[in-house]
Every structure is written in structure tokens, then in C-alpha cells.
């Protein structure tokens, strides 16, 4: 019983996830530290490219984390801090690209392609229903006219001939 409790305690004592942020970088004000973490999570580490500076162990990421905290301590707003970094490294430093003229295709492209595809599919089915279709399957799908009396008579004749 005691062992089980101990094991349970261990489970709940699971260490919090580790971050690249070093203890000496952490600000004493928890509110400001939270803002810094939030900003850092949105900034790309340019050396490793697909990690945020919050996750990255690279030197440049560490420098940028410190700069983010310095700017915040100096009284900058979150947007001002982000602008500070973007003005030096460009929009690429933002893990979430901004919505503006240059990125219009990026943001709206997938929706436009999906919409276009949907319209094409709808048009295809509507045409098929009205009998006029791109591949003209109407002839295949509609039943052929029933055999006439003359044709039935010929079939019977042919079958009779075949009999031994």
C-alpha cells in the first residue's frame, strides 16, 4: 500500500516540461516573465529556423530572449517588442506570418483552391444530373430502348438455328 502511494506521489511529482530558458534569464516579475515567454514563443530562432527562441538553445535565441526581457523591463508594450525584432530580422522571424498584402496568397490561397475545387465538383454533378456532362456518360447510364418485336423474333430464330 505504501509503495503504491509512493508511486502515485511520483506520478504527480512529474517534473514540469523543460525549456531552453535559463534560470538567470528569468525576470523576477512573474507577470512580465509570462509576457516575455508569450512573445518568445512567437519568435523564430533564425539559426534553427523551425524552433521558437523560447525552445532553442542557440546563442542567438538566448540573446533575443534577453533582449525581449530588456525591452519589457524598459516599459515597451508587447507589440513594440515584436516590432523591435521584426525591424531587424524581417517578418520571417514571426512564426505566425502577419496578414498583409504580401502574404495574401499565403493566407487566402488554400481557401481559394478549396473553394474552386468545391465549385468544380458541384458543377460536375449538376451537369451530370441534367444529362449534359463532360464525358457524356448519359448514353451509358440511360437504359437502351427495349427490343422491338422484330428483334425478339430474330433472336429466337438465331437461337433455334444453334440448337443441335
Amino acid at each position: 500500500m505504501r509503495k503504491a502511494l509512493f508511486a502515485l506521489a511520483l506520478v504527480f511529482a512529474w517534473p514540469p516540461p523543460a525549456w531552453a530558458v535559463n534560470p538567470d534569464e528569468v525576470l523576477s516579475d512573474p507577470v512580465m516573465e509570462n509576457r516575455a515567454r508569450e512573445i518568445s514563443r512567437g519568435l523564430r530562432c533564425l539559426v534553427c529556423q523551425n524552433q521558437s527562441i523560447d525552445d532553442s538553445d542557440a546563442d542567438l535565441a538566448k540573446d533575443l530572449r534577453i533582449i525581449v526581457r530588456e525591452r519589457l523591463t524598459a516599459g515597451d508594450s508587447d507589440a513594440q517588442v515584436v516590432d523591435f525584432v521584426v525591424s531587424r530580422y524581417g517578418d520571417y522571424v514571426l512564426l505566425k506570418p502577419p496578414f498583409k498584402l504580401a502574404t495574401l496568397v499565403l493566407w487566402l490561397g488554400p481557401a481559394a483552391i478549396a473553394g474552386g475545387g468545391l465549385i468544380a465538383v458541384l458543377m460536375f454533378f449538376r451537369r451530370r444530373r441534367t444529362g449534359e456532362s463532360a464525358v457524356q456518360p448519359a448514353a451509358v447510364l440511360t437504359r437502351p430502348p427495349p427490343l422491338s418485336d422484330e428483334e425478339n423474333r430474330r433472336i429466337e430464330e438465331l437461337l433455334k438455328d444453334d440448337a443441335p
Binding site: 533564425l46 539559426v47 546563442d59 542567438l60 540573446d63 533575443l64 533582449i67 531587424r88 530580422y89 524581417g90
Partner: peptide, 13 residues
Amino acid sequence: PKGRVAIDFGVYG
């Protein structure tokens, strides 16, 4: 030594 001017220049590598 701290790379601060380099960061102002957008240096990353």
C-alpha cells in the same frame, strides 16, 4: 563582445 550591434544589423550567422 555581446553581439548587440550585430543584432541591430540583423546578423544571424
